[in-house]
Design a protein around this nucleic acid. Structure first.
Lengths: 328, 328
DNA sequence: CTGAAAGCGCTAACAA
DNA sequence: TTGTTAGCGCTTTCAG
């Protein structure tokens, strides 16, 4: 069996309390004894059991991350931010993918609570009201990241999606476009809804006729929807709710022998890796995803260490990135 | 405080042993009592503590995943496979990114061992000999995934990289190419080395002059190296060690006004998402990444549940995918 | 400065 | 079928 604290104590000729003290950097252990203990630890290859420690202290050095799908190129950078910040603070990280299934999301939250995580970063797929109520009663701290849930008391971090969309559309308008279509994401995701609303505001303010086609946040969806958009609306510009949609749309545009940006200018949102690699390169709204992850963990840490006064809702700054798909 | 098993026992008017029994689906609890307990659990919103349970049973229902960088588009699908398989079997999953730093890798392994994980799936960044020795002495089961380490006694799953590269090159040769260059990955990663060797074998067998340029597994590296390759070697075809390199190379080829595949045909390896989205679409060697993750967990589960006879080294099948970048 | 002892929440014999 | 009682490995008073 793995050596326990008792083995170390025996080998060092001290009590386990003393071993525990040196393990926890307690300064009031005499140098000589400390050395003896350290040596015993070394010789036995002893590793303290984190779970025993957690049980004893009833606090946990692990946090959980629940997200839709790590396979979607938007999320890995958030996850990296979260993980780096977590490790930085000495936490280990659980991860679970929900595939946008609220039921699964709920299951994973429960599972993590059972695992006694100290807190959870949640990139939510819109739980229903009942589920949210249940969450609120949990004593486990929760921070919403990227995707918010309306009227919810949780700390959160995101960007101003309405404003981001508004700016993207204004940008297109400023370049002379009047027929600007929008490829929207799922209606039950708040960031998607807000971008849609931002698009509509901008079009209304400019007195332009809006045209929206709704799909999922995927490349395939972009390909599929864009054909109809072109046929029905004949746009000269497109604002897609995320880059995957934009990239799909671009593929369809090109397949039809039209040029980007000459015939149709395209701007997306998210700034995923492949916007830089595509041809033409994709203009987009850059979201500080990594920073968002880091911030989420900071908020969580705050709650976990008790420093909580009221709900904190952080809004990070986005940035419009001009690339080839909008002209030179 | 959160309710404990004692609270439930008290509320249901039974002993905690009985509560424990219904928690563990022990069949020998009378229906009536079971119902009472279940109700008490419900009413208190009781959730059993997984860590207390782990301490008591001295087994763990969590496994760990250590990988280079979830932000690299190659890894998320492996991670998904691992996570899905893990949850399927009732395990929770820890995750850590090493950024290809062997030192960090070692740290995270230790941390996971302290967290009492039941096993570790390791996508390794080539630990040194000493580190491997230390691992071997660990009682924690380890499965190597995707990236193997020579002369190591761990179970593993990967593809035959040598063969994959060999086939890619033969494919190019069969299409009439003679000047075939290779963009290679880091020399300390085994899969990269094997692909390089596979390239060399194929070229030698065909009596062709090889040309290799070595970089990292990144898009930027592809862009950077390709210029020199073109100037020095004037290839008509390129085999890149992974898709990111291939995509970078394609960008540089196009920037120079050359055409793909007419002037230079390109084939990569990995089959990442964006090979399908690029223009032209990228030919590649498809690796069953998701399946690889699933298999890794199965091997781990096997070890954890004691069923271990000898070392198992699984080799999965790859597949050549023909797309536009190699012609029609 | 160090040791003894009482838990942390749960499981698993062993009794009853 | 259910209750009693030791632990699991560690931390943390409280004495000494």
């Amino acid at each position: 069996m793995k050596p326990t604290i008792m083995d170390v104590a025996a080998r060092a000729g001290v009590s386990k309390a003393t071993v525990s003290r040196v393990l926890n950097q307690n300064p009031q252990v005499k140098g000589e004894i400390r050395d003896r203990v350290l040596r015993a630890i070394e010789e036995l290859g002893y590793r303290p059991s984190a779970i025993a420690r957690n049980l004893a202290t009833s606090r946990s050095n692990v946090i959980g991350l629940i997200l839709p799908d790590i396979t979607n190129p938007y999320f890995p950078f958030i996850a990296r931010g979260i993980e780096d910040a977590a490790h930085q603070l000495g936490y280990s990280l659980f991860i679970s993918n929900t595939d946008n299934d609220p039921k699964l999301e709920q299951d994973y939250i429960n599972k993590m609570v059972e695992q006694q995580v100290g807190g959870i970063v949640l990139i939510s797929s819109a739980l229903d009201v009942a589920a949210v109520r249940q969450l609120t009663e949990l004593k486990t701290p929760i921070v919403l990241c990227d995707r918010l849930i309306d009227g919810t008391p949780f700390d959160s971090v995101s960007i101003d999606n309405h404003k981001a969309a508004y700016e993207a559309v204004c940008y297109l308008i400023s370049r002379g476009h009047k027929r600007i279509a929008h490829l929207a994401g799922p209606r039950n995701i708040q960031s998607s809804e807000n971008r849609r609303a931002g698009y509509l505001s901008a079009m209304r303010d400019a007195n332009l006729e809006p045209y929206i086609s709704t799909g999922t946040f995927s490349f395939e969806s972009g390909v599929e929807l864009m054909g109809t958009v072109i046929d029905e609306f004949k746009p000269t510009a497109l604002f897609a709710s995320n880059d995957l949609l934009a990239l799909g749309a671009m593929q369809e545009i090109i397949r039809r022998g039209m040029r980007i940006p000459e015939d149709i200018a395209v701007i997306g949102c998210d700034d995923i890796l492949f916007g830089k690699m595509s041809r033409p390169q994709l203009s987009t709204i850059s979201i500080p995803v990594y920073q968002m992850g880091v911030t989420a963990v900071q908020l969580l840490e705050n709650q976990m260490t008790g420093g909580r006064e009221g709900t904190v809702k952080k809004i990070l700054e986005h940035k419009l990135i001009h690339r080839e798909s909008c002209g030179w």
